[in-house]
Design a protein around this nucleic acid. Sequence first.
RNA 1: UGGGAAGUCGCCAAGCGGUUAAGGCUCUGGUUUUUGGUGCCGGCAUCGGGGGUUCGAAUCCCUCCUUCCCAGCCA
Length: 569
Amino acid sequence: MDERYEEETKEKAPLNFLERIIEDDLNNGRVPDNTIVTRFPPEPNGYLHIGHIKSICLNFGLAQKYQGRCHLRLDDTNPEKEDVEYSDSIKRDIRWLGFEWEPYEYHASDYYGQLYEIALQLIKDGKAYVDSLTGEQMKEYRGTLTEPGKNSPDRERSIEENLRLFEEMHAGKHPEGSYVLRAKIDMASPNINMRDPVLYRIKFASHPRTGDTWCIYPMYDFTHPISDAIEGITHSICTLEFEDHRPAYDWATSIDGIEHAPHQYEFARLNINYLVMSKRRLLQLVKLGIVDGWDDPRMPTISGIRRRGYSPESMKDFVSRIGVAKVEGVVDYSLLEFCVREDLNKRAKRLMVVLDPLKLVIDNYPEDQVEYFEAVDNPEDPNSAVHQIPFSRELYIEREDFMEVPPKGYHRLYPGNEIRLKYAYYVTATEVVKDEEGTIVEVHCTYDPTSRGGATADNRKVKGTSHWVSASEGVTIEARLYDKLFLTEYPGQKTGNYLDDLNPDSLKVVTDAKAEPEILKAQVGDYLQFIRNGYFCLDNKTGKTELPAFNRTVTLKDSWAKLKQKMGV
RNA sequence: UGGGAAGUCGCCAAGCGGUUAAGGCUCUGGUUUUUGGUGCCGGCAUCGGGGGUUCGAAUCCCUCCUUCCCAGCCA
């Protein structure tokens, strides 16, 4: 009825700058076959981390949105650092996120032959030369940020000589470091990347894919743009630090004979506070044994995230919420947690698990009786299944849920107070049993048989509801309580050493948590909520050995903890 | 001091000469609740500074300031 309303609901979500470019290109016929082609080009020299998720979602997402395609290209031009172990993990991680590249899987090494031919052509055209400067000398000749560089003495070497030398490099006749092939561009360029960049270096290293076929390997600035061109990439999206390389990219895609000219666009990489993301630091955490491996649940690697219990859907949602721009910012860790909680709240099966057990004895409950209560698997789901929970005279409740002398605002169990045991009965604490040291070892209470199911006919209210586990029927599990790996927003900012900011309590292992028997049905990959404690998942490594181990994905929001802190309790 | 880029709420981020300057997270009031969870309702910025153009500027121009990236035979 209201046209304006109609229009508003039809209104498109705002486009990010890349979508705008693509739509503009599409609308102006600048895209061959009207099919955009992107690529995700990781170097197989480490595990993918959460920062890569942004790039993956961008490249695959854009291709999906505009009905194009996205290639997976392993950028393997440095055999010294790369390994198939990494390639395998990269593929596993992309698939986990729900993206598929088949049949478009490529390797930069697929193009070594073509790259070599192009290099030869460049030499013949007088656009590249073999340089014998040492690394040290090259640095000197390169100049500085403010001073121009100067030409290498080899810059005017004859084409024949260059050809001969390059072929000899290829044939393995020269040792590593003796020669490189350089582009002849401009040693006085204000852009250092254009001061005759190295195209090829000699490396007598065995390549994971090409073995010992090559002893010269092409550099990124040469390989990447040409790989893009060969594959028909239309939009080559990378991070901001490559902005300075765009002229080199354009130089390479303008080489005679290269028909398709893709374009490079740069976006700001993802930064999240309280996290370290560089491959160097992640590798160090693994090597120093600070974490359990690349897939330690505290690691921001995709494999760590997966083991921690984060869902791929929540990660994609996270990426879509942070947006895409050229501003280098730092996203709040709280947004990440929000996305995980939001998704898990909708899908996690609820279970009662007591992490810090305190025995609760119901004095007026029949000694050997066991009765069952029905629990909803997921109250967020109107069609949720249900399961049964055994109840008995002796139970465990969370130690935090009882206090002998409660502070103001505490409405859990304390002497004389009545609370609800979720799904079961109302109980009132009557007596406390302590050991010699004065620690509470047992709480006694009485229950109201008419409150069966957790409500009474007189409709009287209780302020607290606790979860519980039957002492006789419950099972013991291991729970790994993960917290942030770092204590500060920007690890290392103060001392210069990020290891100084490690959180000593980033992992607490509880080996005597008590759970309702239903937990034994949990499978790897299931999303669980331990009621009032947080989201958990069965660890995907230890599986079910003696003690099933569960990893805490994230806690529930805890406004009581916040209140307590504010009151200074 | 060379080149490249960026500056809109505590954090992301829309906005593209005329809007009460979207939205999300955080924070914060209230409400619902057999999870102190969830849900629901509400609160929270004049756009890095200064000039100018214009009837009108976050949006255009000038200038200053701040931050980030670049001197691997890494990617």
